[in-house]
């Protein structure tokens, strides 16, 4: 039982980060219908920048992190404006998807061209101490990660619910044509969505890199796939669904590592998610798509 609780806690901690990734992915999908597969590599480039500035320029890691956060928003918006909009304006979503994949490689290659192929260390922001409570080991960095992730989710939720722009994002996500008809500036909102989602995703990515202490060039696709899977399992139309999907993915992974093997954990978790989507095609909290004839 102790072992199970231990795994559950670690799963929830990692799942909270997947939830942030899933949110960043899902909001874009909701508003644009585009599978943003450059999502993870945009964040990857910014993570490399954190390490690059710290190591290369002896910059304080916190300042490097702040600069990278701004870059995450700017890069996301740039990719949307310069690349995606050429496809989405014509409703060419399949072509946009291919462009997103190409874009992912371009961003990853920029990172590896500057900083090399070899894995890099990522600065540790909180240090770590481990407490044992009733036989269960609790690591402080995991708890801090969970706390920050919950805080970001809460702020993001408040932003979407309480601010004018946030409400515009939610409404445009429900029905773009209605949004245009009531005078919500959909084009501008889409760009804002990319910026905000870049920030939310980057916080998740930085927490993850901080926990594992390192970076490599495949992390971008890993983030994208985790986000895509968590959002799909949770229900792509529902933001609460993305959070549930992320947590579930984290817990299943953690249980698979503990009870089966670290080697197969990823495969098992993704297979379990595939079965869940088979059972609930709309996702756990998903809802029907709006169609206008």
């Amino acid at each position: 039982m102790r072992f199970f609780i231990q795994l559950l806690i670690e799963g929830i901690e990692e799942g909270s980060v997947y939830a942030l990734w899933a949110l960043g992915y899902a909001v874009v999908y909701q508003v644009l219908g585009l599978m943003n597969f450059a999502f993870g590599d945009t964040l990857l480039l910014c993570l490399y920048l954190v390490t690059g500035l710290e190591v290369g320029f002896h910059m304080s890691p916190w300042i490097a992190l702040a600069l990278a956060l701004v870059l995450a928003a700017v890069t996301s918006m740039f990719v949307e404006r310069q690349i995606y909009s050429r496809f989405t304006n014509r409703q060419q979503l399949e072509a946009g998807f291919i462009a997103a994949l190409a874009c992912a490689y371009i961003l990853r290659n920029i990172a590896t061209a500057v900083w090399g192929q070899a894995p890099l260390a990522f600065p540790s922001f909180f240090g770590n101490s481990v407490y044992t409570i009733a036989g269960i080991k609790i690591a402080s960095d995991g708890l801090i990660m969970l706390g920050i992730a919950i805080g970001v989710m809460a702020l993001f939720g408040l932003y979407l619910r309480m601010t004018k722009l946030g409400r515009g994002i939610v409404l445009a996500g429900q029905d773009r044509q209605s949004a245009a008809v009531v005078g919500i500036p959909v084009r501008g909102i889409i760009t804002v969505v990319f910026g905000v989602c870049g920030v939310v995703g980057f916080i998740g990515a930085a927490l993850f890199a901080n926990l594992f202490g390192g970076l490599n060039s495949t992390l971008g696709f890993y983030i994208t796939f985790q986000a895509f899977i968590a959002a799909t399992v949770g229900g792509a139309g529902s933001l609460a669904g993305s959070v549930v999907g992320g947590l579930l993915l984290g817990v299943i992974e953690s249980l698979a590592v503990g009870y089966v093997s670290g080697n197969f954990a990823q495969a098992l978790a993704w297979a379990a998610m595939a079965v869940l989507v088979l059972l609930r095609p709309r996702g756990i909290l998903g809802r029907a798509q709006v169609e206008r004839v």
Partner: peptide, 11 residues
């Protein structure tokens, strides 16, 4: 106010 209302379904 379009035909078919076009309300936001989940709002």
């Amino acid at each position: 106010v379009p035909q078919g209302r076009w309300l936001f379904p989940y709002a």
